[in-house]
Design a protein around this nucleic acid. Structure first.
Lengths: 222, 222, 222, 222
DNA sequence: GATGAATGAGGATTCATTCAT
DNA sequence: AATGAATGAATCCTCATTCAT
């Protein structure tokens, strides 16, 4: 996906500047809502034509943005998944394993809060319009996630596991993706450090409940 | 595909045809991705100009679509919320109360599967661009939802409740909104009756776990 | 090819203005050399967008221009052809029949001198890019022409007739099509009335020679 | 597809590769219809910029193509013309002189069938846009052609001769230039060896008729 | 209320050309 | 001599909107 001679490192290559700008814009307003001109301007180019030296067209740029944005998330998930697999044996997943995974994922999302928006938008669009790249990227971690969840100890049957995986995904990504809405409906900035920390604690507890590693069960607030 | 009060006359009014067409289109491709021309065509009009006899402009049409789409959902939620409130007294929410709420909501969403897409899209867009109508519609049920959840018995603190509300929302709506993606990544049609039924059972169980009314706790699959 | 409600006759309809402008421009500089903007301006439209209310795209406009330009020529040829057929019986075509045909054709071309350019350009382009309309228009008169020439009395075999038809066509149309070049290479305006009259006499003589009705044969200038 | 003096080295120079590619393209789609990028690609260059190492700009390349394409044709015509002049004395041109000329010209055109297209296109375009080179190339042979025809014995007056010259030119070049159209309207490939041979016989006969050296006059098919 | 037409603004993309390497 | 990249201008076409009918 990245042919160019390898960046000299001194500054971000033009290609990366473009990807950065496009990522921000596409996350904010979606594929159709972004004009190539804005991306060019944001990337420090004086002219949209320059974009086409780096990406064949808008669609190709969009896909490159998605692939680049997805990669680290896929990495976090798959590394954590492998770690979890190797620990199993004690009968079920341990809470701290899960928490470690969630921490890594949320650390990354907190630093790249528009990625979930980008991904949700892609999920809403007809994915068949995307080249195979994206599905190919997602399918493996989806399968792995489902498999890893099989190690858990919740009240789940085999056929529930894909739904559980999707549910946890929505729990985590939905918060960031709907941040703008939450801000209007709730109040306060959902992306402020404090708010993200609260959400982090919430997600850990919620996932623990769902996976049946909730510990002090039933003694909750009483 | 056309829900509302059930048309007395065999044909829907032009205005409703337009709203129907726009709802489908906006759900599929978002505000920016839809051209007035398509909506006109879909609505059986030969000319886009006709749209402007019914809606001042694209923005107004979009908001009308959102308002119309949101209303029944708000109704379901708020009715269920009131019912729940009136039952409380026995110490905590009962599982069947919750299930009844989820059933009604999922019944509706199953029949209008693109509404979640429409709403997710709106949530992703900068909501400030929408007239006050939408926030005004959502804030009450959000507040009510948070309050109702206060009756629950999970391991949640007061400050967790808004996050819990949002989480449950994402759990439910995310499934429908990401249907296209799930289809590609998973396989099978997530909107088929069987798939929706599975998701319904899953959501009930998951919410029960989160709200601490899980019943056969810890004895899960063992 | 002309849907519109039928022109009120008071002035040329916008559609016709567009066709007129496009005919001139396409004849002058060919399909690729003409910008939609020029055509719009020439047609008295303040904006190129208006063109697209009348023609789906540049290609469709081009084809409409060709069809409209070809029609009268096809008519002249086919009417003359039928006249010629009905006269036959005296053994061979009569010179005055041929001259009448050439007069009518050259009358028309003299008044529409850019049509031959337009047609030559179309002939040079890959005709497969044109919708079937054009070939469908030309094939019949080509066949008819070949058949009519079969009545002639030149030294031609059956297999020569298509080539003879094409040759006569080139003789007639080539003059107008290459007018610009002739002007530079020769001198004088090939489209001036005098020059056209000379060409008319020449063509009549030349065709008579080719068809073997040359009369004072061999006594030429001697 | 690549004619010129026969390359000493097995590979043609870049400049020639460019000229070859440009000749093909310009013949196919005309000056305005061809992009520098295509020419570069066709010529085996990875970048359009390279073209500008060999030709100052598109216009200069076009003129170089025309000059290179025209030169051999001019040579054939002028050599044949001189030969004809030196033979005169017997009262009129001999048929075999004419046939020899036509054979040489058609031999060359048969091997370079897109040259007539290229030239016809140039003739259609406003020739004043071309630098003087092209007119300067054509004027002499035109004058010579007209003079040579003065030796002929047809029914032609002095003022007819330029028209006769142009007519014969159209007869010969028009066939190749309109090949694409003939293929669609007639049928069969007009550039196949058989078809070209037929056209060659036809042209010889036709020119003979026009020049009054037709021999077996009036005994044609009877 | 529906429509054909007009239109300004802007959409993505291509163009020929230049410059530094 | 070849290339990657940049760029201003232009390309075709679509957009939302308006107006007269």
């Amino acid at each position: 996906m990245a042919p160019r001679p390898a960046p000299k490192r001194e500054t971000r290559s033009t290609r990366d500047m473009i990807l950065d700008a496009a990522e921000r814009r596409f996350a904010e307003r979606g594929f159709a809502g972004v004009a190539m001109r804005e991306i060019a301007t944001d990337a420090g180019l004086r002219n949209q034509a320059s974009l086409y030296n780096h990406f064949r067209n808008k669609q190709a740029l969009y896909e490159a943005v998605l692939a680049r944005g997805l990669a680290p998330i896929v990495a976090v998930v798959s590394e954590s998944g492998e770690a979890a697999e190797s620990e199993v044996g004690q009968g079920a997943m341990r809470k701290d394993t899960i928490d470690a995974f969630l921490d890594r994922l949320l650390d990354y999302l907190e630093q790249h809060p528009h990625l979930p928006q980008l991904i949700q938008r892609a999920a809403l669009d007809d994915v068949r319009h995307l080249r195979a790249a994206v599905p190919r990227l997602l399918r493996p971690i989806y399968a792995q996630g489902v498999h890893t969840l099989g190690q858990s100890d919740g009240p789940w049957q085999r056929t529930d596991l894909p739904l559980l995986a999707a549910g946890i995904y929505h729990l985590i990504f939905g918060y960031f993706a709907s941040a703008k809405l939450l801000q209007v409906v709730g109040g306060g900035d959902p992306l402020s450090p404090g708010a993200v920390a609260r959400q982090r604690r919430f997600v850990k507890k919620a996932v623990a409940e769902l996976l049946g590693v909730g510990g002090r069960r039933r003694s909750g607030r009483s």
